[in-house]
Write a protein that binds this DNA or RNA. Structure first.
Lengths: 323, 323
DNA sequence: GTGAAAGCGCTAACAG
DNA sequence: CTGTTAGCGCTTTCAC
């Protein structure tokens, strides 16, 4: 039989209240002697406090829920890690939920987490969802969204990543390095991300007095073959460029491949800058410079804000942009 | 104020015992009429049962812990996903813990999970650990290890991956495709994984009547530059080979790069086969054929076995090899 | 079919 | 400083 607080109390000849206090370090009012005695008994018996029972009375489970689309998608592990690290700092555990961008699963987990009485929820919004369903609005615990797509969901605390700004900075950097004819191979303009990255590109050109040239733009998809095709087309048509700013690393990989096949040297003949969805990319392709996305920070900050909301109910509905 | 079982009971004019039964579908002995009435009240009030309270009496939290070194390491997300999917199937939630291969963190989480009264633990053993510490042995709940390195930890239920066999099959396949001079560029022989993969390579050759040729072996590290260096050396020294079996995908990426630089065509001039630690690799490098590791299945099976152990206390100490 | 009552293991006043 | 006591919200016999 598992040993419980009562056993420790009996063993040491004190009350369970006293034992509870030393276990929870509310020892301000406990004599060192009793404290030692209790601690020793705990040690000897291997007593493990039952936090489920504590939760019953404290109404705190010290657990938060994390709902993401899919931990296998390389975008999310870092977010998850950020959340977990911050949670751990305050003694919170994290329940991991993969929603697959499926509304039903999202609701399933929202329910599950609430039944488990989590203290709060970090929710990574999929790029598909554009608004909260009813069951969302009914969530009775602090909830914060981590939004990689700056969607139009409001009225919730959220962490957003500013793709426009990140893109702007990357292109500005390229300009500062003397590049002038910067092509842009983007993801589909149906994607908010792609649009924001494009806007950042454009703004950087404008603010540095470089005229925007639509012939340097190639819209495709977020994959390697798209990058390959765009670059092949450019090479064939003889368009003049000295560098490429790519919508993501997959595109960049395709671009690099096409350049290789045409005996271009990188970065001597053409610089390639990608956008980081995937950590591993640059390991495999050292020619690639990439814009790091603050995924870890997004998770970390989300958890931080959430814990804040858990501790002061008033802290809700904040917004926070990374980096 | 949150609505609780008592409120539902009052609203419907039945006892809390009855409400409890309909909520938990122990409705064999409940009249359909009462059932409907209760369900309706639940619906109207948005009542969410407090599973923490249930856990108090049932002694089951329907939660399992998952300890892995680091979710950011591309090896683990799939394992985690496998665990989560299987757990979900039986209504279990998963608490995610990143240990960073740090014994202290491992113990911290082992403790945390037990305090949270998880029903069981899936533990992914780091390649460093060679034995269980005391606190390990004291774990009072079912525990199963997922072991990618076939280490010498015994006396626990575990899932292992058979690198030797996977390697054997890959090389056999290469041989069946007519390849005869298969070079092997391996990870460091200090790694169990590397040794097992090497053994599989060797066995495949032997069983297919191909003589082992140590000059076709190049030992390095599990990274790109190692692959690049090995291949460069081979090309310089004029060693005759028609293909390369690589210890992992990083090595393979380096090999491919070196071949490219020397105007070899893949797979016409030389086939390259990698070993899959990283899903993304083949997206970026389509020339690469790779041995898939059953990471997802490992996680899935681990959770399955664990749930089995949770349900029948006798099912422990099984072993199970994937694939 | 349904209800009453006894806890599950712990915390938090309040007394002493 | 320490003990007593009243629950936390639910499940589960055992009566009715």
């Amino acid at each position: 039989m598992k040993v419980k607080i009562k056993d420790i109390a009996n063993m040491t000849g004190v009350s369970i209240a006293t034992v509870s206090m030393v276990i929870n370090d509310k020892a301000d009012r406990i004599s060192p002697k009793t404290r030692e005695k209790v601690l020793k008994a705990v040690e000897e018996t291997g007593y493990v406090p039952n936090r489920v029972a504590s939760s019953m009375v404290t109404k705190r489970t010290k657990t938060i829920g994390l709902i993401i689309p899919d931990i296998v998608n390389p975008f999310f592990p870092e977010i998850a890690r950020g959340v977990e690290d911050r949670a751990k700092k305050d003694g919170f555990a994290v329940i991991l939920c993969n929603s697959d961008n499926d509304m039903n699963k999202e609701e399933y987990y929202l329910d599950l987490l609430q039944e488990k009485m989590v203290d709060g929820i970090v929710f990574t919004v999929s790029s598909v969802r554009t608004e909260f369903s009813d069951s969302f609005k009914k969530v009775g615990v602090p909830l914060i969204t981590v939004d990689r797509d700056i969607s139009n969901i409001d009225n919730y605390a959220k962490i957003v990543v500013d793709n426009e700004q990140a893109s702007y900075e990357a292109v500005s950097y390229m300009i500062s390095r003397g590049l002038k004819k910067i092509a842009h191979m983007s993801g589909p303009s149906t994607s908010l991300t792609a649009r924001h990255r494009f806007q950042g590109y454009k703004r950087a050109l404008e603010e540095h007095g470089i005229e925007f040239d639509s012939s340097l733009i190639c819209e495709g998809f977020y994959n390697t073959s798209s990058g390959y095709d765009c670059m092949s087309k450019f090479l064939k048509s003889g368009i003049d460029f000295d560098s490429v700013f790519c919508g993501n690393d997959m595109i960049a990989a395709g671009v690099i491949k096409a350049l290789h096949h045409n005996d271009y040297k990188i970065p001597e003949d053409c610089s390639v800058v990608g956008f980081d969805d995937v950590e591993i990319a640059e390991l495999i392709i050292p020619e690639l410079t990439t814009v790091r996305q603050p995924k870890y920070d997004m998770g970390y900050k989300a958890a931080e804000l959430l814990i804040d909301m858990i501790n002061n109910k008033d802290a809700s509905k904040k917004e926070c942009t990374t980096p």
